[in-house]
Amino acid sequence: MHASQQNQAESKRQPVSVRVDQVSKRFGAQEVLKNVGFEVEPGEIFVIMGPSGSGKSVLLKNIIGLEVPDEGTVWIDQLDASKRETHSQVLTAMVFQSGALFNSLSVFDNLAFYPREHELYDEGTLKKKVDRVLEMLSLQDAAEKLPSALSGGMRKRVAIARALMMEPQLLLYDEPTSELDPIMAATICEIIATLRDELGVTSVVVTHDRDVASSIGDRVAVLMHGSIRKIDTMDKLKAIDDSEIKEFLNPEVNLKHPRFKTQ
């Protein structure tokens, strides 16, 4: 089963598209996503920005099939993303906001987990591959450490590394640079762009970082209160005439704001 899966993945290594078709998602009384719809082109880097709590993570979980939309459908290359088979036909991976590392396994074993379970390589090749990915993310010294012994930013990088080991066709990043210093953040951006240029990986990147969005985002969607407010290139978005978006993208620090008055 797994050998065929690998073959499938290799033979079908063409860039995939994503179509989010009028997706709504509710948790109890709270409507988290309301008729969200957009398309991601094959090989595109699609950035999603939006205030905290606007539903970005929930949207990614709907794309990766961990949550099922109440209404609407997410299509990955004409395949329904809520079905598990879809994700073995089109290889998809996700970098979780929290990392979601396997806490009982070392960093090396976290990275090796997917290829080992699916028997993709022999141990020698695997070690080389893992070492290369670790090096890409400057994690060589952490290989034998347990996730509990890592810093927040290191954990984030391990999560990215683990997703890279899957060599997916579609990669979803939930705030990949949120805990990283500017140099590391730039490295992550380079990796995302290189994956697209060399392997045609389609990426959906949730980020709060405007620099990340403008440097790698082909298009940027602004998600507010569970609906898409605008999709455009970052430059055009910055110039847009919508006060809420404007304030979100170019917030002014105002220490004299009434909010901060102590009395």
């Binding site: 899966q5 979980k61 990766i64 099939g65 961990l66 598990r84 994700h87 073995s88 998809t92 991976a93 996700m94 979780f96 929290s98 979601a100 590392l101 396997f102 806490n103 987990f113 997917y114 379970e117 699916h118 683990r162 899957m166």
Partner: peptide
């Protein structure tokens, strides 16, 4: 349960590795 709460089970699922198996 702690693997579930800390999304490790979700991570397994996205790797196409059913929790029942491992």
């Amino acid at each position: 349960a702690s693997m579930k709460v800390y999304q490790e089970v979700d991570a397994l699922t996205t790797m196409n590795i059913p929790p029942a198996r491992v």
